[in-house]
C-alpha cells in the first residue's frame, strides 16, 4: 500500500535530484519497468548503457531526466527510503500507485498530488487513516497541512 506523510518529515530525502545523481547505477536503466516510466513521463527512450534519447535535449545522461522520473526511479529501487514526491507532477501519480500495488512504499508530499478520479488505497501517516478517493485525500491534506478540522 502507498503511505503518504504530508508536510515536514526530517527523515525524508528532500532534494531527490542530488540524491539520484550520487546514487544511481547504470544497470537501473536495463529494467523494463524503469524504461516504461521514462517513456511515459519524459517521452524519452533508453538506448542502452544508461544513455537516453530525449525528444528535447537529444542524447542525455540519467542526471538530465526530469525531477519527477528521477524520484520515481528512486522510489522503485529504494522502497525502504522516503522521498519528497512533491518533485513529481500529477503525471507521475499513476506510477506511484502502480509501484505501491506491488509493495509497501511511503512518500512525503508537500502539495496536493492528484491521483485521478478512480478508487485507490492510501494510508495517510499523519492521521493513520486510509482513504480511497480524492475527496478523502483532500480532507486529509487539509487537516495535515492547514490544521483544519474534520
Amino acid at each position: 500500500m502507498l503511505g503518504v506523510q504530508f508536510g515536514e518529515m526530517p527523515e525524508a530525502i528532500y532534494n531527490t535530484a542530488v540524491y539520484f545523481k550520487n546514487t544511481y547505477l547504470d544497470s537501473w536503466f536495463d529494467d523494463e519497468f524503469v524504461r516504461r516510466m521514462i517513456k511515459s513521463v519524459d517521452k524519452s527512450i533508453v538506448l542502452g548503457d544508461a544513455l537516453i534519447q530525449s525528444p528535447v535535449l537529444g542524447k542525455i545522461a540519467p542526471t538530465q531526466l526530469s525531477g519527477g522520473v528521477k524520484t520515481l526511479i528512486l522510489i522503485y529501487y529504494k522502497p525502504e527510503l522516503v522521498f519528497n514526491a512533491s518533485t513529481c507532477g500529477n503525471n507521475c501519480a499513476w506510477w506511484i500507485l502502480r509501484m505501491a500495488s506491488k509493495r509497501d512504499i511511503t512518500i512525503n508530499l508537500r502539495h496536493l498530488m492528484v491521483f485521478g478520479n478512480g478508487k485507490f488505497s492510501i494510508r495517510v501517516l499523519n492521521s493513520g487513516n486510509v482513504v480511497h478517493d480524492m475527496l478523502g485525500f483532500i480532507e486529509e491534506y487539509d487537516v495535515a497541512m492547514n490544521g483544519a478540522e474534520r
Binding site: 513521463v41 528535447v56 531526466l65 526530469s66 522520473v69 503525471n91
Partner: peptide, 11 residues
C-alpha cells in the same frame, strides 16, 4: 512555475 514533470522547468 509548476505542472507536470518533464516540461522543462529544471532545464
Amino acid at each position: 512555475i509548476r505542472g507536470n514533470s518533464a516540461t522543462g522547468k529544471s532545464t
